[in-house]
Design a binder for these strands. Structure first.
Lengths: 339, 339
DNA sequence: ATGAAAGCGCTAACAC
DNA sequence: GTGTTAGCGCTTTCAT
């Protein structure tokens, strides 16, 4: 009953296969009459063109994919990649294109290069999400043959596009906000050491501190690895050791800010009365915890949307710039107290 | 430079194409010697078998996909589908298989049936997530030709598998818990009307009420559509109208519970002092809000894992049961007060 | 405006 | 154990 091919349609419609092909590929040089008849027959037969076959023969196919690195490694609570995906699929729906998503971990990347992945899947190009400095793909990416767009990873290349954010500037801005609230002894809650954004945000932190005429030496750094649990543990350790020697925690992610807040509460202190806390990302949860967290909203979904847009432009050679810097926004809520 | 084919490998290794094919398909009848040589040459040439070509010619291919319905329609805060995906990819990693994820909205489903989608993508079968009663796929699903596993949708069929949860029993259990805490005037916060799980949970609610010798008439129902915002709005309206006439809100999802809690606070009341609240799902956020929400943990990630497992078994004809009922757990936290 | 036929890269009989 | 060859279902010249 199933699996009627282009030949079946051709036969039943009384035309040749190439005519059917023309109809389905929206060629101009085909009579409306025959075209309609073909579609009718196709519908009767439940015919749909087989994508694999099309991929084999077609010159200019458009197959785009989203390759997510470290999907399983990220915390379950981390909605960052999820929102990126949603943004990407938003573009797909708006433009009636299809995106296939694949999860690829670091080990897999050692077996096959990015180009090989595209080759074997007949892709036109792909979005690459969640890349870490430790990822194999990262090294070979600069001279890929297939169009590729990365998020939060800056890399030059003919076929390469990047969707970036001014991490440094944004982190400087939120640090300055804390400083403006008269905090002088800050704790920086650092993210994953091998994440590219961590370094950028650190630079922003330093800059804010130094431009305020303060010394980095007087600040503390704890390492939360972008994890709620790690941030909790480290913050708790620090508070138990040094008590209220510091007044504010400036975290590189909302999740870590949440961990820090939990530690503060468990130590019998209150936010923001005893300690102020800021986050980074603009994750939904940051608005729902108590107190709601002051943070930088990265507008993640929009970034996913912009990434596919850029990829499409690179694929069809219409990309003017290969770097898109997306906007952010300081969201002031209730987790910082003026002292 | 790129795109060397099986023929290039064959030539350079001094063998025929079929021998190369045998090597890559792990046939037994091939000398280790030649096999190794082929792999060596393949590596030199950067050869990877093209999946589209393989799909065309291979009889027993294994291509599985995850089809997500209503991906864009769900609230951004809703991590349910995300966790399901993670669970599915967990299985994929553990078993070294590849899963392609596609987002398909209701409109798209009208154009193409499930079988047609599998056909055009050369799939062996797929996981179907997020199906609503309003979805086109749902109707035609019972007699699909391609193996298919649904989550939270019970449907008989030769090639059909379901991963289910005892929604009714679970909801009854959490309602009973509230009742045991001596609440007598409850508000049921209903989910999406067209969601299959809503009806089940409603049955569980009714049963708990009736078995406690109470009357459904004395309870209130508000409609939150599984949305935080809607639940907030409806709860707020109710509280402003009737004040503390009721003592507990029993919600069909954690997100709605969070909305209700926000409404309660905004009306100047406290949880659980003035109103008790329960959720359902076991979403991560439920643990982080304040107070932490008493809920039913669905163990969503495990369900995603189980779903792929079932699909694989159906595909290779080894499925004993086509219905998997996954476990849940009542998680008691701080949002219910004994009165 | 339509048809015939070659070919995309691979697998699977069938030969040897 | 390995080679030869006919497809898989489509697109794309090239004819007409």
């Amino acid at each position: 009953m199933l699996a009627s091919s282009i030949r079946d349609v051709a036969r039943k419609a009384g035309v040749s296969v190439s005519t059917v092909s023309r109809a389905f590929n929206e060629y101009s040089d085909i009579k409306d009459d025959t075209k309609n008849r073909i579609f009718e027959v196709a519908k009767e037969l439940g015919y749909v063109p087989n994508i694999s076959a099309r991929n084999l023969s077609k010159k200019n196919k458009l197959n785009i994919a989203m390759i997510v690195s470290g999907f399983m490694q990220e915390s379950d609570v981390d909605e960052f990649q999820f929102l990126l995906m949603k943004g990407a699929y938003g573009y797909a729906m708006d433009n009636s294109i299809e995106i296939a998503t694949y999860a690829i971990d670091s080990n897999y990347q050692k077996e096959k290069t990015y180009d090989q992945f595209c080759l074997e899947h007949s892709l036109s190009g792909a979005l690459l999400l969640g890349l870490k400095t430790s990822d194999e793909y990262l090294k070979s990416l600069k001279d890929v043959q297939f169009p590729c767009v990365t998020v939060d990873v800056e890399l030059e290349g003919d076929k390469l596009g990047n969707v970036l954010m001014e991490d440094q500037k944004a982190f400087q801005e939120i640090t300055e906000y804390v400083l403006q609230n008269n905090h002088r002894k800050l704790v920086l809650v650092y993210g994953k050491k091998e994440a590219l954004v961590s370094r950028e945000r650190y630079m922003g932190f330093s800059k804010a501190i130094e431009e305020a005429g303060l010394s980095l030496e007087t600040m503390e750094i704890i390492y939360g690895e972008f994890s709620e649990a790690d941030a909790y543990k480290e913050a708790r350790k620090l508070i138990e050791e040094k008590g209220k020697e510091f007044t504010a925690f400036v975290a590189m992610s909302d999740l870590m800010a949440i961990g820090v807040m939990r530690a503060i509460k468990d130590c019998g202190y209150k936010v923001p009365e005893d300690f102020s806390v800021t986050g980074f990302d603009g994750v939904n949860m940051a608005a729902y915890v108590e107190p709601a967290i002051t943070t930088i909203n990265q507008k993640v979904k929009k970034r996913g949307y912009a990434a596919v847009d850029l990829l499409m432009n690179i694929i069809n050679g219409k990309a003017t710039a290969h770097k898109i810097v997306t906007e952010y926004e300081l969201v002031i809520r209730d987790s910082v107290k003026k002292i």
